[in-house]
Design a protein around this nucleic acid. Structure first.
Length: 469
RNA sequence: GUGGCCAUAGCACAAUGGUUAGUGCACAGGUCUGUGGCACCUGUGAUAUGGGUUCAAUUCCCAUUGGCCACCCCA
């Protein structure tokens, strides 16, 4: 097939280039290693802590989220992808994972499994929000839910799991912890807060006056300096916890102390979703010292945005129609995790790198090479090739770019002799070996390399056979 | 949802109200007819879209689309 035939310019390009929908993102092969890295670690950790993977649908009945996340939350009020399906039912793309997991727990009668039921998920979610770095309209979250147990040790263990996930990936993070108490004590606290702020309303920023009406707890983490001053002396939720919540929280902290997981008591931590009760926590990235404001002004230190968050939701199962069942969960954002990994130039191990490259020359050799590729692949080698290329040179270039250890060269001469060339790409030394013995010869050489690699500590991450969402 | 900054090849960046819009990397081919990394040469490839001002717009104006930043909120 003559390769001279340049692709003819076919139809005229459409005037309007079709581009990504706002807030959407393509993940290209180069970035895939980060996703693999995270997924591998998640799968490992989930297994170690006894979580089973659950896959829930992208689409659910709208009511599920209205009832769980809360109808007055921003997420439900203005960020959901909601539409009518062809049957006229109102459906929504899932904006988060917990609601679906709880729905599944109830629907599949998981109450009759050994409690607590520990479930783990990973997948895309959707929120129609204004995009920013690390914030997409389709974004990926992983989550761990423990349903059916109220003991504080569970809270501590889940925080430990979350913390260890990041620590294991060499990401410096801090664990922020708080308790927002039972719904009753929260209502009580709310009253106290409103009371406190009422008299000081004039010193508040405009947003905060809104918050006073809508979501008083948010007053506490306003960034306006004047508001922060007021927040200093505002009543603390800790002081308004009911006895049970308080006792629970103290025990959670004791457990955390015991396992020596560092945490920050953050009395201003409130979570936005309605279903939270009691313990709440977030994982924050530590400020990145590596990114200092450059003289050129090209600073890219993203604002404090949580890598993930979670908490107890002891009333949610009941809210969604199940038996009263305590539960707790954590959810983390994958894109944000990747941003941190990249910013901190954290090594995630080498990506896929082929060990062998098959170069061929001539029609007969090409046929033989095609077969050889298959044999070597089935023998377990990572093999690369460029069979469509004619010249040896471009093939060697590619072998070099891919960083393969050896090139196996088969041309007319080798075809005649029943041999093949093995070229060491680093030294340039090449040897002629019997074609029949190629597998053994290659294995012999690569095993030698394997030892060297181990010394360097550069063992390629084993590509687990986990599912990619 | 609010406010601001921005948009030139695959990527990173130049330039200009007036002939063929440059450079580096990448990609393709060649110098090298069976051998990669280096060098040199050649080539492919772009002014996001729509409208307006103007003799003339990639440049100025408006809108749309998209990106980024700060809010809001959240993963």
């Amino acid at each position: 097939m003559p390769k001279e035939e340049a692709p003819k310019k076919t139809a005229e390009r459409p005037k309007k280039q079709i581009q990504l929908l706002r807030g959407m993102k393509d993940v290209l092969p180069e970035e895939q290693q980060y996703w693999d890295f995270i997924q591998d670690r998640l799968a490992t950790i989930a297994q170690a802590y006894g979580f089973g993977l659950i896959k829930t649908p992208l689409i659910e009945e709208t009511g599920l989220f209205v009832r769980s996340v809360g109808k007055d939350t921003d997420i439900v009020e203005k960020e959901m992808y909601t539409f009518q399906d062809k049957g006229g039912e109102s459906v929504s793309l899932a904006p988060e994972g917990t609601a679906s997991v709880v729905r599944a727990y109830i629907e599949h009668g998981m109450l009759s499994r050994p409690q607590p039921v520990k479930l783990f998920y990973i997948g895309p979610f959707f929120r129609y929000d204004r995009p920013q770095a690390g914030r997409y309209r389709q974004f990926y979250q992983f989550g761990f839910e423990v349903i059916g147990e109220r003991h504080p040790v569970i809270d501590a263990q889940l925080m430990m799991l979350a913390y260890n996930f990041y620590a294991g990936a060499k990401l410096p993070v801090s664990l922020q912890v708080n308790s927002i108490g039972s719904p009753e004590s929260r209502a009580d606290y709310r009253k106290a807060l409103i009371e406190y702020y009422k008299s000081r309303k004039n010193s508040l920023c405009e947003d905060c006056r809104q918050r006073l009406q809508k979501n008083p707890m948010r007053l506490l983490d306003c960034k306006v300096p004047d508001c922060q001053v007021l927040a200093q002396d505002a009543p603390q939720i800790i002081d308004h916890l009911d006895e049970e919540s308080n006792k629970h929280f103290v025990q959670v902290l004791e457990h955390l102390d015991e396992v020596e997981i560092p945490y920050v008591l953050n009395s201003r931590l409130v979570r936005g979703l309605d279903y939270y009760t009691g313990t709440v926590f977030e994982i924050w990235p530590e400020p990145n010292a590596a990114i200092a404001p450059g003289t050129d002004g090209s600073v890219k230190q993203s604002a404090q945005s949580a890598l993930g968050g979670g908490g107890r939701y002891d009333t949610l199962v009941e809210t969604l129609g199940g038996q009263p069942t305590p539960a707790i969960g954590y959810a983390g954002g994958i894109e944000r995790c990747i941003i941190e990994l990249k910013d901190r130039a954290i090594s995630i191990g080498a990506g896929y790198r082929p060990e062998l490259f098959i170069a061929q020359l001539g029609a007969l050799a090409r046929k033989k090479a095609l077969k050889l590729f298959e044999d070597l692949r089935q023998a377990g080698f990572k093999v690369a090739e460029s069979f469509a290329k004619d010249g040896l040179k471009p093939q060697m270039e590619l072998a070099n770019k891919l960083g393969t250890k050896y090139a196996l060269i088969i041309g007319q001469k080798e075809m005649m002799d029943g041999t093949i060339l093995i070229r060491d790409m680093e030294s340039g030394i090449q040897e002629t070996v019997d074609f029949q013995k190629i597998t053994a010869e290659v294995r012999k050489r690569l095993e030698k390399y394997g030892v060297v690699e181990k010394r360097d500590g550069k063992i390629p991450t084993p590509s687990a056979d986990q599912a990619h969402p």
